[in-house]
Simulated assay, not measured.
Amino acid sequence: MKKTHGPALLATFATALSLALAACSSGTGAAKAAGGGAANSDGSPKTLRIGYQLIPNGDLVVKDQRWLEKALPKTRITWSRFDSGGDVNTAMIAGSIDIGLAGSSPVTKGLSAPLNIGYKVPWIFDVIGENEALVARRATGIAELRGKKIATPFSSTSHYSLLAALQDAGLKETDVKIVDLEPPDIQAAWSRGDIDAAYVWTPVLSELEKTGKVLVTSKDLAAKGKVTADLAVVRTAFADRYPKALSVWLQQEDRAIKLIRSDRTTAAAAVGRQLNVSPDDASKQIDQLVLLDGRQQAGPQYLGTASRPGALAQNLYSAAQFLKAQNKIPTVPDLDVFQRGLAGKELGDAFLR
């Protein structure tokens, strides 16, 4: 049975125009910039644009079961697939989506200068565990990767974890050659023999494990203080204008976690359909994550409440310090920037009333 609680979470684009163009063409599906518009007569949005990723958490259950479409019958729900949190950040800046999934590292960047994306975190999709890992072809330890070519999606949680793993092994970033590839491209490059190692997540990770060796997982790094998570981000303007719709969205995500706990067969089948894998494989992938329900997330270890922001703010602040040390962001924002970035009020309205 899936563990339902885990340790507390620790953890420049050139112009606005170039970002907007990138958002409309990146990956496998940035949503079109058009959308939103006036509200329906009942106050619900006419359109809700969601950016999702192929990660075996509750979001895929919500999508597969069409719960949002049923709960918001007057709202047109669009689902656009992304390959990484960096692409989600780009789409958020372009105004292409209203809610998206991004890892804690890209969210840290999104809340920091120079991006300062106008969004906040209302939900934790999952705490990352063994579903993200560093896999190598002909190495038994990380130190053996010196001079090797390692692929990972830049600005992702995997990128953050790779840098942490190298640092822990006594290697500098310049001791290896890190290349920026999205997960599908990593799988293709691995098949061609173009790369020596990769830090990536399932389902691509599962394919690489067939011919490679796992050197370290994100669960291993979490035990050393470098915890990562998949977070929801919602445009602040959308959250302010449509609080009821956001509450409905939160309740459906919570419903998915409860289904995973109570009826794994149905939940695994739903996730399997979205990932195009068997229910058994989907269930195994689900087990590699830590999933939290709404009440758990409103606790002090995680998102917290409006009056008392949770430990996630400190975790993102710690991640910002690490990213600054790696020259990935120019400055570290004050802690209150990350505290304001947590949507504790919205989470409390959905589950604690």
Rank of each mutant, 00 (worst) to 15 (best):
M1W: 10
G36F: 04
M92L: 13
K74Q: 14
E132I: 08
V176W: 02
D349M: 06
I257N: 09
R264I: 10
K149F: 00
P203K: 08
R255D: 02
K210W: 04
G294Y: 00
L9Q: 08
D334W: 05
Q326D: 10
S318L: 09
R264T: 11
S112K: 03
F351C: 01
N276M: 12
L17T: 15
K109L: 11
L101M: 15
R137L: 05
L145C: 05
N116H: 04
Q274F: 02
L275N: 01
Q326V: 04
A136D: 12
K63G: 02
D126H: 10
A320S: 04
A139I: 03
A223D: 13
Y160N: 00
G147A: 11
V61N: 03
L352Y: 05
G212L: 03
Q274W: 06
L111F: 10
E209W: 08
R353H: 05
K120M: 07
S191I: 10
T90P: 08
L181G: 02
G212H: 05
D59C: 11
D42G: 02
F351W: 08
L312M: 09
T47I: 15
A22P: 06
G193H: 11
R295L: 04
A343V: 11
G299Q: 12
S104G: 07
D349K: 10
D194H: 00
A31E: 14
N327Y: 08
R241T: 15
Y119H: 13
A34P: 14
G29D: 07
L163Q: 11
K172I: 00
K244R: 09
Y199C: 06
A237M: 04
A311C: 04
L231C: 05
I142P: 06
I55Q: 13
P106E: 01
A306E: 14
K328Y: 03
I260R: 11
D194W: 01
E144N: 09
Q53K: 14
Y52D: 06
K226G: 01
T202H: 10
A229S: 06
A229R: 10
V135I: 10
A350L: 05
K74W: 01
G6R: 03
A30Y: 07
R353E: 09
M92A: 13
L68I: 01
G37Y: 02
L275K: 07
H5Q: 14
A239N: 06
D98R: 08
F82K: 14
P7S: 09
G344L: 05
S283L: 15
H5K: 15
V176G: 05
F351R: 04
G110I: 02
P122Q: 06
C24I: 13
L205N: 01
A133Q: 10
V61T: 04
P56V: 07
S318I: 11
L17Y: 13
L115D: 14
R340A: 08
T305S: 12
I55K: 12
V204S: 09
P330Q: 12
K2C: 10
D185V: 00
E207H: 14
L145E: 02
S80N: 15
S44W: 02
F125C: 03
I99Y: 09
T12C: 10
I117N: 12
L72T: 10
Q167H: 09
Q285I: 08
L215T: 10
L323H: 11
L259F: 00
A282D: 00
T140D: 15
A133I: 00
V332R: 09
A34C: 12
N315M: 02
K74C: 02
D180C: 04
Y317A: 03
P7F: 08
K177Q: 13
A189H: 02
F154T: 05
